[in-house]
């Protein structure tokens, strides 16, 4: 049996994603919401929360979120709220897990993602 094909899904960050995720998560680092604060640390503008991007991957690896047993990922490049994110998921043959990654064009956002799912 061949391994299932990797599936790529485009996710468009919603308007005000930085403010909304900051308020919902309590992660109020101003680099995610304030252009001046982002520029002050050398960024071109506000950047996506890595945890928001991870939540997108989690939505896509598990049809039932409560089947998630564990998840692990490395954060790579920075993501920007005005650009689509492509999340790539490769499910295991046995349905017990998946590997995943996310990118914006050539920039990796998430790599070496791994999810374990309960049957």
């Amino acid at each position: 049996m061949s391994r299932p094909e990797p599936q790529a899904t485009r996710v468009d960050p919603p308007a005000e994603v930085g403010r909304r995720y900051a308020d919902a998560s309590g992660d109020h680092n101003p680099i995610h919401v304030d252009a001046a604060a982002a520029r002050a640390v050398g960024l071109p503008g506000p950047i996506l929360h890595g945890m928001w991007t991870l939540a997108q991957a989690a939505n896509l690896v598990a049809d039932d979120p409560f089947a998630l047993e564990a998840i692990a990922v490395e954060f790579r490049g920075i993501g920007f709220p005005g650009e689509p994110v492509e999340v790539t998921v490769q499910r295991d043959e046995d349905g017990r897990g998946a590997t995943f990654a996310a990118a914006q064009g050539p920039r990796e956002l998430l790599r070496n993602g791994r999810a374990a799912l309960r049957p």
Binding site: V11, P14, V17, R20, Y21, D23, A24, S25, W52, A55, Q56, N59, D64, P65, F66
Partner: peptide, 10 residues
């Protein structure tokens, strides 16, 4: 609010 911000619909 967390579900709305992350697109979680369960």
């Amino acid at each position: 609010a967390f579900c709305a911000a992350t697109g979680t619909t369960h």
